[in-house]
Amino acid sequence: MKSRFYAYNFGIPMLCAALVFLMFDMTGIDIAISNLLFDPQTQTFPIDKIHFFEKLTHKWARIIPDWTAEIALIGALLSVIWPLVNPHKRPRLGAFLQRSKVAPLLRFCAEHRRDFLFVVVAFAVCTGVIHFLKSHTSVYCPIETTLYGGKMPHIEWYENFQLFHEAGSGRCWPGGHASGGFTMLALYFVARRYQWRFSKAILSGSLLLGFIYGTTRVLQGWHYMSHTLWAGIFVWLACLLTALAFYGWARLALPVLSRREQTLSRVAATSACPAFRTAD
């Protein structure tokens, strides 16, 4: 089960990286797609001029990842309150919190402190990774290049990659807006650990959300399609590595409920077969 989990979560992003590099970075598909969206007569991407489309898909759409990060941060902060309250030592305060319906929320946050912190850190790590790649490749957006009426040259990310210092002022690769949607993948790793029935839906929804975020920017001329795909690849790997740091190799691959069920099974087997009990 562990090998299948890691083969799936490492293998798919790495396979996608190879395919995107060969199919997009090594060909002219990106430019061909953007050419279809560009109006050579007006030297513009017509959809970029629709202000409502910009607000709906770029500004308002940020509410989803922004609110998710804020809720996770609030949960992480609330998680430290219940241990400080310590209802056993402060029964009156505990009773008051119970009557006010606050106690269940504080207990829940305390029980899932690691999960809340993971989501907060995963979002920060994903943002940091994307920012690093943007500044160390200095790729300009299509609309900024001479191909579409801009002043900057068109370059591929691997032609200008600098590991130890910033490569220039370009900030278009990978897709930043798309990465905001893809960061919701952090919720998938939490959902899977607890075997929530909608964990696969969260995975699919996060990938779809990031793809939609990125595609809307492609339509506006602010990204190539491959920028969206690269954002998804890096965010998936960043979330996975952050989850490994928080939960460990074995605990991440083996869902919580599965471990509990296995423990109960072992206890039941031991109770049913006293002969197999180990001596004290």
Rank of each mutant, 00 (worst) to 15 (best):
K2F: 05
S3Y: 14
S3H: 13
R4F: 14
A7D: 00
F10I: 06
F10C: 13
I12C: 10
M14P: 13
A17W: 08
L22V: 08
T27F: 06
I29N: 01
I31P: 01
N35Q: 10
D39K: 13
D39T: 12
T42F: 00
T44L: 05
I47V: 13
I50A: 12
I50C: 12
H58S: 15
H58E: 08
A61C: 04
W67G: 12
W67T: 11
A72P: 09
G75W: 04
L77R: 11
L78Y: 08
V80T: 14
I81Q: 06
L84E: 08
L84Q: 13
N86V: 11
H88M: 03
H88P: 05
K89P: 00
G94M: 07
G94H: 09
A95Q: 15
F96P: 07
L97P: 06
R99M: 09
R99E: 02
R99V: 08
R107L: 04
A110H: 15
E111P: 01
H112N: 15
D115W: 00
V120S: 02
V120Y: 03
A122F: 10
A122V: 03
A124T: 07
V125I: 14
C126K: 09
T127E: 14
I130C: 12
K134R: 13
S135R: 13
H136M: 05
T137I: 07
T137W: 01
S138P: 10
S138I: 05
I143N: 01
L147I: 01
G149Y: 09
G150N: 09
H154E: 05
E159D: 11
E159S: 05
Q162V: 14
L163D: 02
L163H: 07
G170K: 02
P174Y: 00
P174Q: 08
G176C: 10
M184T: 15
A186D: 12
L187N: 10
R193A: 06
W196P: 02
R197N: 04
F198I: 07
I202M: 09
G205R: 04
S206G: 15
L207E: 01
G210E: 07
Y213D: 07
T215M: 05
R217Q: 15
V218A: 06
L219N: 09
G221R: 03
W222D: 05
S226E: 02
H227R: 10
L229A: 12
A231C: 15
W236E: 10
W236F: 11
C239K: 09
L240C: 07
T242D: 14
A245R: 04
A245Y: 02
G248K: 12
L252T: 07
L254D: 06
P255A: 01
P255E: 09
V256P: 09
R259F: 04
T263A: 12
V267I: 14
A268T: 14
A268C: 07
A269C: 10
T270V: 03
P274G: 03
T278Y: 02
A279L: 09
